[in-house]
Each structure stands twice: as C-alpha cells, then as structure tokens.
Nucleic acid binder design. Structure first.
Length: 465
DNA sequence: ACGGCGGTTGAGGGT
DNA sequence: CACCCTCAACCGCCG
C-alpha cells in the first residue's frame, strides 16, 4: 500500500468538519482523504428521504462542499454497491463513517463493512450523532428503559462522561488523482420550489448556520427556556432539530456548552438537556423496537377503530380545520418546514383523537414536510401523542385546541403570524373567531370538540382486551 | 377517566 | 443469632 491509497470519508448524517470522529480518523490515518456523499434512495426503501429533507440536504451539502474547498464528491444509488465498488476502484486504504441507527441502515452498513473487510479494506465507523450509543443506557438489570424520566435521571445524567470533543491535529491532504463521482449540481434531488423557498427564507443549513442558530439560542433562548418553550409566539426554542438531524452541529458540543452555560438558571439548563435526551430515548426505542415506525408499540391499539376520511385529512394537512391554533401550526409547517413543539402536540392530538385518523397519516405527512424529519423522533413522537407508544401520553388525555390556544398563545401572536386572515380579530376571540361576528375568509370549525372527544373515548373502550 | 414502571418495603430464608 | 440477599407485593407517579 502506498501513499496514494486514499482514506474515504463517507459523509451521511454528520455534515460537518468539527468534532467529526470519522473525519478526524481518516485525516489522522496519514492518507489523503476522499470525501464522498451517496444519495441512496434504493437501500432506504420506504424510508427514502422526504421532499423537505431533500431540499434541506442539498443546501447542507453545498455548505459542506464549500468548507471542503469543493472536494466533496457525489454519487446517487444504492450505497451497498457504490461504496465497495468505489473503494476498490481507488484502492482505498479505508472507509470511515459516522454511524446511523435506522434499522435499514444498520443492516446495510453491516453488509458494507463485511464486504470491505473481505476485500482487505479497513472499514471504521464512529459515533457522530448521539450522546450515547442506543444500547448503552440500560436499567441495572440490563434491559432497556421504557419510561423517559428514569432513562434521563438514572441513565443519561448518571452515565459516565460523554466522549470528549475531538480536536483536529493533522493537516488535511486531499486525494485528487482520479476524479470520481459527480458534481453536486448534476444530482437529481427532486426538489420542490415552495420548500426550497422555505429553506432560504427561514434557515441557514450547514455547519455555520447551525452554529449561528445555537449561539442565538444561547444568547436569547435558554434563559427562561423551561417556561418559554411552551409559548410558540416567543423565541424560546432552539430550532436546532434540522441541524442536529443532519449532524451539522455535534450533539456532544451542544451538550457540553449547555451544561456549562452559567448565565441561565439550573432548571432551564436541565430541561434543555432532558429534551436532548428525548432524542436519545427515541433512538433507544427504535434500536430495541425496530418495528416502531409502522407498528403500535402497545399491541392493544391494533384493534383501534380508526376512521378513514380523506376529506378531513386534507383539511388538517392544509390548515383549514377552523381551529386557529391547529391551522396556524399546519401552516407554519407548510411555510417554514418546521413546527413549534407545543403545536406539534396540539395538531397531533387533533388528528388522532378529534378526527380519529390513524397516526400513520400524520407521521407520513410530517416525514415529507419537516426539515427535521427523523425516523426515530418522528415515529416515537407520533406514537407518544397517539397514546400507543412506550411511556405515552394516555389516550384519554385529549387536548382541547381552544384551551391550549388560550393558555399558550393568549394574545394570538403565533396565530396571527401564520394566519393573516385572523390578524384583525381581537385577542378575546382569536381562538374562537366564529363568535366574533366579523366577516372573514376563514373556515368555521369542521368538527365539534365535545362530541368528537366522546367518540374518541368510546373508541378507546374497544381496545380493552 | 388508565395502567405501566420503578422505587420501596418487608417477609422469608440462607449463610 | 445477626446479617444479607432475593423476590413478591404494593404504592405513587406521570405520561
């Protein structure tokens, strides 16, 4: 093996150069590096990237390519064929990547690792995406936690130190002997112009954008986070979820910075850490219950009498239910590729409980619409709100969108931002615009809260044994 | 309106 | 006997 055997860095969900263990290991191997990205819809099957994810991804990759001075090379197709073939063609010394934990990826990557080893090519994977490997945090008896609070308190907070941040030492040499792959602009990402505009107008994908967003949160959001995070009209959530999903910022860096933040109150800090650990918890669940994206974790919900109503689903999807807080959330999603967490719970409860539609419909719509669409988080959260998940919200707790709106968006700041038709409605009527008596271009409620609530509770009865 | 989880407690039995 | 370990039963919490 001579000096020209490149070390392939296979970027996946770790689109950054700082605190990237795979990147550092490849550089430190002493071989020139060959950074690659593979857009793999084939191996992903039904979990191929949603439309919003693709619109974010191309921006993030463009940013990464820029920080790699244009040396990132692109491929499209099944990675289980492309990576071994490429490694052979360029006589790679090794392939380095950050681990992903979707069941299809675990399966695919294991195959790739074996194939590379059979060809005497090193294959090294690293934890670039989580604080803890998904099978690391276990109860004293060795079984996985099923409840979040002890997972967080006795598991995560007690776990020995997270891996320290890595520091780059060696200087980077790039492999440029034979051009491989394609230019990013030659790849077909099947983009959507509305969502592309949503990225441009609201976000800055990539490592720099992630850091900027994190610093904004440290400056303005974390102080008062515990309370403030419930109010979608204020600026108290981190909005880091898309950046974390694509690994544009290191979760270890976020954890350490927040933990050592001295300006904020202890309870604000601890609450934000717990939110980071909900993400860990979702990955833990997915690892131990790989069927989670499709199957109810509580089997008794398999008997639940879901309705099937395209018309209702469309009203929900488009934000035309007539309940302002629900519609504002669904419109925020369409306009910005994101939705405030409190509102995600409200729209989820409305779909599953008031409309009595299966959580799959919500999960699939979110998968296609969210820039932070993430298999573990999305499926765990939908099961949570639907009441069929582990450590779930009890099914009989049904959010009332009027009460929730009054409580968490009292003046209607959030509602007015996303539903301009309601801009002039006085605060006292903002959550029930139909009683205001003003003529406005906004639908009257498509369903009655009290009777649909009763219907849901009755439906719940049929899940008992 | 539920019910699973996990912390606690105490009985019982072994060393 | 004194101590400790195990395990089942119970209770309160919290999603």
């Amino acid at each position: 093996m001579n000096k020209t055997n490149p070390a392939i860095i296979w970027f996946r969900q770790d689109l950054r150069v700082n605190d990237n263990q795979a990147f550092n290991a490849a550089v430190e191997s002493g071989m020139p590096i060959l950074p690659v990205y593979v857009l793999d819809n084939e191996n992903a099957g039904e979990w191929a990237l949603g439309i919003a994810s693709r619109c974010w991804l191309i921006q993030s990759l463009t940013a990464l390519n820029k920080s790699l001075e244009g040396h990132l090379r692109f491929f499209k197709g099944p990675a289980d064929q492309i990576i071994p073939k490429l490694a052979n063609e360029v006589n790679a010394s090794g392939v380095y990547w950050g681990r992903c934990y979707e069941p299809w990826r675990i399966h695919r990557d294991q195959y790739i690792k074996t194939t590379l080893h059979q060809n005497n090519i090193q294959a090294k994977s690293f934890n670039n995406s989580l604080l803890f490997e998904p099978n690391r945090i276990l109860k004293p008896d060795g079984t996985p936690y099923k409840v979040f609070t002890p997972f967080f308190r006795n598991g995560c907070l007690q776990a020995t130190q997270q891996t320290d941040l890595t520091v780059k030492t060696a200087s980077v040499r790039v492999f440029d002997q034979s051009p491989v792959g394609e230019d990013i602009n030659e790849l077909d990402f099947s983009l959507d112009s509305n969502l592309q505009a949503a990225v441009q107008n609201n976000w800055q994908p990539g490592e720099l954008g992630a850091l900027n967003q994190f610093n904004r949160f440290l400056d303005h959001g974390i102080q008062g986070y515990k309370e403030g995070r419930n109010f979608p009209g204020t600026d108290h959530v981190s909005r880091l979820s898309p950046h974390l999903h694509f690994g544009e910022i290191s979760i270890r860096q976020v954890w350490h910075s927040i933990k050592n933040e001295t300006e904020a109150d202890r309870e604000d800090i601890e609450h934000f850490l717990s939110e980071l650990c909900w993400r860990e918890f979702s990955y833990n669940l997915l690892y131990h219950r790989p069927e989670m994206p499709r199957k109810n974790l509580q089997e008794k919900f398999d008997k639940f009498p879901w309705r099937d109503n395209k018309k209702d689903f469309n009203k929900w999807r488009l934000g035309e239910t007539g309940y302002p807080i629900v519609d504002a959330g669904m419109r925020e999603l369409r306009q910005t590729g994101y939705m405030h967490n409190r509102v995600r719970m409200i729209v989820g409860s409305f779909l599953v409980k008031n409309m009595l539609l299966h959580w799959h419909h919500g999960k699939d719509w979110f998968w296609d619409s969210l820039f932070d669409a993430d298999l573990a988080n999305n499926s765990a959260s939908w099961q949570w709100i639907a009441g069929c998940g582990a450590d779930s919200m009890p099914y009989f707790r049904i959010f009332n969108p009027i009460t929730q709106g009054r409580k968490f968006d009292p003046q209607g700041v959030y509602i007015r931002r996303h539903i301009p038709e309601l801009a002039k409605i006085p605060a006292e009527h903002i959550h029930m615009p139909w009683v205001a008596g003003t003529k406005i271009n906004y639908p009257t409620p498509i369903l009655d809260l009290a009777s649909t609530r009763k219907r849901a509770l009755k439906a719940l009865g049929s899940t008992r044994n």
